[in-house]
């Protein structure tokens, strides 16, 4: 078998990490935020997940970052990788240059080093946009009988929008959210598009207008398209936002 690698000859990677520990400001001697460089020997199939864990276990046990599924499905590990937001767990070091600069996702509360509180942001967004099925009859649904029908195609379309993993990459990739904290971002608008598509949600366009019919909502989007280009799940964000913009502009109340 000619393609089974035997001997391994590997690069030395310079991983520069933006260190900052807000909570340590209170007690420990803190150096503020600074870039710290770690050297890691690259290995076959090394991802940033592997590299960062190696750094933590062997070089600096205090390094903070978030991984949960390490399989690109939970959305925990969004960070800025050489300037661009992405999922660290599915980023291979072989696709990166010798020097790798890592920083936390901007626009979210910093917990420490590479760890940010995307969860809090997303929960806030969910509460604000009421991202659940609104249906008066939900209380009385009868679960003993055959379920409501749905066109297979429609179910698929809803799922396509449901694939968002709330990783926050689109928020970090959007200049608007960087300037204006109140903007719900592509993740929020996509959720509204998802529920609008869902016949089980009985909200009208006027209801949705109340949620996103302002400059913190759909009209705040300046069509920078970073969201669409950097969403790790390749969601059709621009299409959805344009769609909502048309709908909301046509809403009369």
């Amino acid at each position: 078998m000619n393609n089974i690698p035997l001997a391994e000859e590997h690069r030395m990677l310079q991983i520069q990490i933006l260190r900052h520990n807000p909570s340590a400001l209170l007690c420990d001697s803190d150096k503020g935020s600074h870039l710290q460089t770690f050297e890691v020997e690259e290995a076959l199939g090394m991802t940033l997940f592997i590299a960062l864990n190696e750094i933590r276990e062997e070089q600096d046990p205090s390094l903070q970052f978030d991984f949960v599924c390490r399989a690109g499905i939970c959305g925990s590990c969004g960070m800025i990788i050489n300037g661009r937001p992405g999922l660290a767990c599915r980023t291979l070091t072989k696709d990166l240059p010798d020097v790798i600069v890592l920083a936390p996702l901007p626009g979210f509360e910093l917990i420490g080093d590479l760890s940010v509180n995307t969860g809090k942001w997303m929960r806030g967004m969910s509460e604000h946009l009421e991202t659940w099925v609104h249906n008066q009859e939900l209380e009385e649904i009868n679960i003993d009988v055959i379920e409501e029908r749905m066109e297979p195609r429609l179910a698929e379309q809803i799922y396509e929008l449901e694939r968002c993993i709330e990783c926050g990459c689109c928020i970090a990739a959007c200049g608007t959210t960087q300037m204006r904290e109140e903007f719900v971002g592509a993740a929020g608008l996509n959720q509204i598009a998802r529920f609008r598509l869902d016949p089980r949600d009985k909200r009208s366009d006027a209801d949705y207008y109340e949620l996103i019919g302002n400059d913190a909502g759909v009209f705040g989007c300046m069509t920078l398209l970073g969201c669409e280009d950097m969403c790790p799940k390749n969601l059709p964000l621009a299409t959805q936002i344009a769609f909502l913009r048309r709908r909301m502009a046509m809403t009369t109340g």
Binding site: V68, C69, I73, C74, S76, G119, M122, R123, E166
Partner: peptide, 10 residues
Amino acid sequence: VPAKRSHSAA
């Protein structure tokens, strides 16, 4: 972790 990141998602 945030509830939606629980491993049920896998």
